[in-house]
Design a protein around this nucleic acid. Structure first.
Length: 565
RNA sequence: GGGCGUGUGGCCUAGUUAGGACAUGGCGGCAGCCUCCUAAGCUGCAAAUCACGGGUUCAAAUCCCGUCACGCCCGCCA
């Protein structure tokens, strides 16, 4: 409802500016603690019209006409240079009415077009570590938010199966047996680390690895088979980890498809046509505007490079979607720029990039090859265990299965929230102890508010207060905490929209926390079950509506919404 | 050397795209609140030269210039 309110204020303000003969490009609206929405447009006009902002603000307010009916605005007032707008009773009423049938609106089903989002895309040479985790969670929250905003979303995991490191694993797998007692991706990592050591100690072995790569690119059936076995083995382990985090991909796109399917050749051909190509011996280079070094897209020996394969991949994505989003680590930023320029040359829509800064350990940067990483599996294990202890402390009354279930939901929620709450362009030094410390204002805090709402509704039913009656008079909800909560509820769609256009998933985390805070204050100051009949009815409506939004926002963050904890 | 990003109370963090009303929260610290719907909650207190130095402006955490610190990138790797 906040979006509608904001739009109406914009309109009303625009009309008033015209009537008062002021010209301003923007309404200068901002959320404010002094009003429901506030305009600082008077500041901008002060210079041009050589009057004090306060006088202009008062003048504008005098020209403001709030519609007699069907409006969400209660009043507009000039407070010094600011013009403050407030919502009216119907705003509260409509907000709750809208939540009657849940929050799924008519825009929720793919009508904004198709967006392909690529995230995680860890090399299949070992398990996911905490760096991949940040990528996966930022990506997954965006997926959920975009769906909610009305996009038809397709999620891709781009499988780098043509790199040297995968060849090393395949080479190693010919000599070293996988430890079948281990989770598949961990077994692959063992082989990778061991094989890598062998290759490093004896550089003659590199020839074998190179031979494997050439045969794979050429499509040698036996080699392809070996690759597929190894890559699929690793991916199965990775997928299992992702599943525990409530993350799934629609499509696993293998790099090699673009080589053997001919798409890479086509891209190189198209680039040749463009005239931005130069040759260095038999190698092919692409000149890019504003980037000093030309990009090599084909080796002297004629084999393909990551860059060319990536171009083919993006050309394909572009042809089958309206919007492309790539979630990349900061180390890929230059690549993303090169990609953009190259796609421009191909006259193809470029992706939008969500670039996130690195996660490092207190001991230094992460490295799968050096075995220096914390795997996501280990992290999940430990955080669920920690959550279990917390549940046990509080709810000895529950049976084992239930306690485990809550611990899982709380643990995963906490982990995900922790990763998504900070802005992507902040560098993170990962501290195991900090992560395990189920933070007070993280996901469990929000889940707890939801559980409290559920508890009230459960008890209401048990006491025979009947179904929640959305026709109950909302006007009785006059307490400050009640009004604040409703206003907070009304902002979900607005936040979703902001997070979608700016591609900032952490906005959702912030909103979720604030929503839970609002609910907790309401809970504290407004008894529901013990209120008088007349008041209890609308309060139950508010609890029910809050439960809906809390649950929704938790799901948008990829966390569960437990009914009790 | 060049490019990108970050620097906000003891620690972590929001706000920087579009400059404006007392800089958002958390952790930790101190002091309180369970005869009342789950205390994973709530209330209060202490704690900030918004890295540093200039500049623009009526107004700067936010814009401009410079400096410093940290991270990442600058492969016929992926």
């Amino acid at each position: 409802m906040f979006r509608e309110f904001k739009k109406e204020v914009e309109q009303v303000l625009k009309e008033a500016l015209e009537k008062a003969s002021y010209e301003s490009k923007r309404p200068e609206l901002e959320e404010s603690e002094h009003a429901d929405i506030s305009s600082r447009v008077a500041f901008l006009l002060a210079q041009a019209y050589k009057k004090s902002p306060a006088i202009i603000a008062a003048d504008i307010v005098n020209h403001i006409q709030i519609p007699a009916e069907n409006t969400l605005i209660s009043d507009a007032a000039a407070v010094g240079p600011y013009i403050n707008f407030r919502v009216n009773d119907s705003y509260f009423h409509k907000t709750l009415q809208q939540l009657k049938e849940g929050t799924e609106t008519e825009t929720t089903r793919g009508e904004k077009g198709k967006v392909i989002i690529e995230h995680t895309s860890a090399n299949p040479d070992g398990p996911l570590h905490i760096g991949h985790l940040r990528n996966a969670i930022i990506g997954d929250v965006l997926v959920r938010v975009l769906k909610r905003a009305g996009y038809d979303v397709e999620t891709h995991y781009y499988v780098n199966d043509m790199g040297r490191q995968i060849a090393v694993v395949v080479w190693g797998a010919e000599r070293i047996a996988f430890d079948e007692t281990k989770k598949a991706d961990h077994a692959v990592a063992d082989v990778y680390i061991a094989a890598n050591r062998m290759v490093e100690e004896n550089s003659d072995l590199l020839k074998d690895v190179g031979e494997l790569m050439r045969k794979y690119e050429a499509g040698d059936a036996a080699v392809v088979k070996k690759y597929e076995t190894v890559v699929n083995k690793c991916l199965s382990g990775i997928q299992a980890s992702l599943q525990r985090l409530n993350i799934r991909h629609d499509l696993f796109v293998w790099e090699s498809e673009f080589v053997r399917g001919g798409a890479v050749k086509e891209v190189i051909e198209a680039l040749k046509q463009s005239g931005n190509i130069k040759f260095d011996g038999s190698a092919i280079l692409l000149k890019l505007e504003g980037i000093e070094k030309a990009l090599v897209i084909q080796r002297t020996d004629g084999t393909s490079l990551y860059t060319a394969r990536d171009l083919a991949y993006h050309r394909w994505k572009s042809s089958t979607s309206d919007r492309i989003i790539d979630v990349f680590g900061k180390d890929h930023e230059l690549v993303s720029q090169q990609l953009t320029k190259a796609l421009e040359i191909l006259r193809v829509k470029a992706p939008e990039f969500v670039i996130f800064e690195f996660v490092s350990l207190p001991t230094g940067s992460l490295s799968t090859r050096a075995g220096r990483y914390i795997s996501v599996d280990e992290l999940i294990e430990k955080i669920e265990e920690r959550a279990y202890k917390e549940v046990e402390k509080r709810r000895e009354d529950l049976d084992e299965v239930k306690k485990r279930e809550i611990a899982r939901e709380v643990g995963i929620g906490a982990l995900r929230y922790d990763m998504v709450k900070v802005s992507p362009d902040k560098h993170i030094t990962f501290d195991f102890e900090d992560a395990l410390d189920i933070e007070k204002k993280g996901a469990p805090f929000i889940q707890y508010s939801h559980a409290r709402a559920c508890s009230i509704l459960r008890t209401a039913e048990a006491r025979g207060f009947g179904v929640t009656d959305y026709d109950a008079p909302v006007s009785l909800l006059t307490e400050r905490s009640e009004k604040e909560l409703i206003k907070k509820l009304s902002k979900l769609e607005y936040v979703v929209e902001e997070a979608t256009t700016a591609l900032k998933p952490h906005l959702l985390a912030k909103y979720a926390r604030e929503l839970a805070e609002s609910f907790n204050l309401f809970y504290k100051y407004c008894p529901v079950l013990n209120a008088e009949d007349e008041l209890r009815k609308p309060r139950l409506v508010l609890v029910d509506a809050a439960k809906t939004v809390l649950s929704d926002v938790l799901h948008l963050l990829g966390a569960e919404a437990p009914e009790e904890m």
